[in-house]
């Protein structure tokens, strides 16, 4: 700007600042309004629904249960610390009297708390997602590169894609029990079962999006590769991979969402420790607090799912070379 003074006067007279503030205030206020309305509606309707476990819990009870769950977790942790403390004290005392004693450390076997369950679920979903991506990305690249491979695999993919995790689970359970046999298993069978189920259900979006991304690389870029006589490996590394990253990540985000949804269902049935099992246990438990605790789990599941999606978005933004592309 040539004249700073002019700009200033103008900016003082009719600045977009008030409107900017308004927009900011609205961006803050509207979501709050939405949430408040939702809570209001919830607390108004909840007491009217009578279940066999008492009235449907309102926001207040759910909040109380959330606090209880955290408190239970802290108690459990304190107990665990105490247990190990007592154990090492005992071992030390015994060693004094009997130097030849071979001190054993026994692990704490308290029941997993809600927070532990979240941790287990996260580990399972990430493992399943990584396994799914490790299969889907390379396979997707080859399907995108080769029309023939695509034609031969596409029918199978299209048929397996819509299968519900609940249908896979019995099969996966039986196969895992039959195949994964070991005296001292590093992973629990239930973990392997949920992990495979999650992978089976979540690899399709990544697979298909990667294949489409690779198949639709600009022909000019492929010509560049031909003129340079890039080897297949260099071609994949330098041209195909970067060119298909935007589509690949669209697929990966969808896969992550699916993986998280599938996991909860799989955990419920496979009895793999995790949020799904927590919900199932509370449902079977049937105390007057069960419904509120299940709602805490539901909200947690939603929130974790949201966070996972945001993390994927963040990674996508980091990796994507096309900063102008619309990423939502």
């Amino acid at each position: 700007m040539t004249s700073q003074a002019k700009l200033n006067t103008f900016s003082r007279l009719k600045v977009p600042l008030p409107t900017l503030n308004l927009a900011f205030a609205l961006a803050l206020f509207l979501p709050m309004l939405g949430i408040s309305l939702f809570l209001l509606l919830w607390s108004a309707t909840a007491p009217r629904i009578d279940t066999s476990l008492g009235a449907f819990p309102g926001p207040g009870q759910v909040f109380d249960q959330a606090k209880t769950l955290i408190a239970e977790h802290q108690q459990e942790r304190a107990k665990e610390v105490g247990f190990y403390q007592r154990q090492s004290d005992r071992n030390a005392a015994r060693l004094v009297t009997d130097p030849g004693y071979d001190a054993k450390v026994r692990p704490y076997t308290g029941k997993p708390t809600f927070i532990d369950q979240i941790g287990t679920s996260l580990v399972t979903v990430i493992a399943g997602f990584v396994l799914a991506s490790a299969i889907a990305i390379p396979l997707g690249i080859f399907m995108g590169l080769s029309q023939r491979l695509n034609q031969s695999l596409n029918p199978i993919v299209q048929i397996l894609k819509p299968v519900s995790p609940l249908a896979w689970l019995p099969l996966v359970t039986m196969v895992v029990s039959a195949v994964y046999v070991s005296d001292d298993p590093y992973f629990q069978k239930s973990f392997i079962t949920s992990l495979i189920t999650v992978s089976l259900c979540s690899l399709w979006p990544t697979l298909l999006n990667t294949a489409v991304g690779v198949a639709n690389i600009e022909p000019d870029l492929l010509n560049v590769s031909k003129v340079l006589r890039l080897s297949t490996w260099t071609h994949i590394r330098k041209i195909v991979l970067p060119a298909s990253i935007p589509m690949m990540f669209t697929g990966l985000r969808l896969s992550m969402g699916t993986a998280w949804m599938v996991l909860i269902a799989a955990e419920m049935l496979a009895q793999n420790p995790g949020l799904g099992k927590f919900v199932w246990d509370e449902f079977q438990n049937g105390s007057s607090n069960s419904l509120a605790r299940i709602i805490v789990a539901v909200l947690t599941i939603g929130f974790v799912g949201y966070c996972l999606d945001r993390i994927m978005l963040l990674i996508q933004h980091r990796v994507n070379w096309d900063k102008n592309s619309q990423v939502r």
Partner: peptide, 19 residues
């Protein structure tokens, strides 16, 4: 009978690798 760098091509829309 095949493309090669001794016959370099300048394409109409530059076709640089955007990344």
């Amino acid at each position: 009978n095949e493309p090669g760098p001794e016959r370099a091509v300048v394409f109409q829309n530059h076709s640089l690798l955007p990344w």
